[in-house]
């Protein structure tokens, strides 16, 4: 007999996401973004399905963050703030997202993480997020088939994690973004520090935005790029790669966790196996 987990690991986070996707598909709900965070509110796993609006990504993540850091479901916060929760948005750089679809993961009488969904109506978001939380109480696994782009991203990230594990490298965070730099998938391996996930996302964004290795953002476009603060995501550090598939630019990938050069090497080695090309 399996027991209720007392910590959200990457594999549990993926089970939660699969359960949410399965629920959404069974009930013919719109594709959206699915986020699972740990008890500090930091992303462990995030996926955005094909066709989901890019803006839903950060809404899903911020919903999960809100549920954890406010220790309450979005539905409760909505009621206790009497529908005026949006006023609190001036706090925490606008991250507080007091809308249904934000659920704390409660197990063993405490909050061990959070689930966020964005992409449908408030009612649908709530139902999907509930389906995610309830998955940790299920023994069976939820296999969910996803659309082409997300399934490619999943394959790529699985290969990266496998490579890192096989070579006994330090655990990493993986970020895969689309051609507009918006996240499709964010995974943080167990024991990878939570800061690595934001680094990975920034590297992926930088690679995608400049269609080159992330460190080249400085080389090609001048040293001031990193210091002008025009965009807080610019991170000209090795470990971000812009990807081509069938000679077409498809997005970027970033990883963080090891020395930057090592991160870059991991990506370059792995994408070869899957017929992606790096844009140099």
């Amino acid at each position: 007999m399996s027991r209720v987990p007392n910590k959200v690991t990457l594999s549990i986070a993926l089970k939660i996401i699969n359960a949410m996707i399965r629920f959404a598909k069974d009930n013919e709900m719109l594709p959206g973004s699915y986020a699972v965070v740990d008890e500090g509110g930091h992303v462990i796993a995030f996926e955005r399905r094909d066709g989901a609006p890019a803006a839903t990504a950060d809404i899903a993540i911020d919903k999960a963050w809100t549920a954890v850091t406010m220790k309450a479901s979005g539905r409760i916060l909505e009621v206790i703030t009497r529908g005026q929760g949006w006023r609190l948005n001036v706090k925490h750089k606008g991250r507080l997202t007091i809308i249904p679809g934000a659920i704390p993961i409660i197990a063993h009488g405490r909050i061990i993480g959070g689930v966020g969904h964005s992409g449908g109506s408030a009612e649908d978001d709530l139902k999907i997020a509930q389906a995610g939380w309830a998955a940790i109480f299920r023994e069976d696994d939820f296999e969910s088939e996803v659309e082409e782009r997300l399934s490619m991203a999943r394959k790529l990230s699985k290969e990266i994690i496998k490579y890192v594990t096989d070579k006994s490298l330090r655990p990493v965070s993986v970020a895969i973004v689309d051609e507009w730099g918006e996240p499709l998938l964010l995974y943080r391996m167990d024991r990878a520090p939570f800061g690595t996930l934001e680094l990975a996302r920034d590297k992926a964004w930088t690679a995608s935005a400049f269609r080159s290795f992330s460190e080249n953002a400085l080389v090609f476009y001048g040293e001031k790029v990193s210091t002008t603060n025009w965009n807080e995501r610019v991170l000209p550090v090795p470990g971000g790669v812009a990807l081509e598939y069938n000679k077409e630019f498809v997005g970027g990938i970033g990883i963080a966790g090891n020395e930057p050069e090592k991160d870059k090497e991991i990506i370059v080695e792995v994408i070869k196996k899957l017929d992606f090309q790096a844009i140099t």
Partner: peptide, 17 residues
């Protein structure tokens, strides 16, 4: 109920045991 409902994609609810 959820497991039986999932057999025909009829689960539109969630509960926790």
């Amino acid at each position: 109920v959820d497991k039986i409902a999932e057999m025909v994609k009829a689960r539109d609810f969630t509960y926790v045991p």
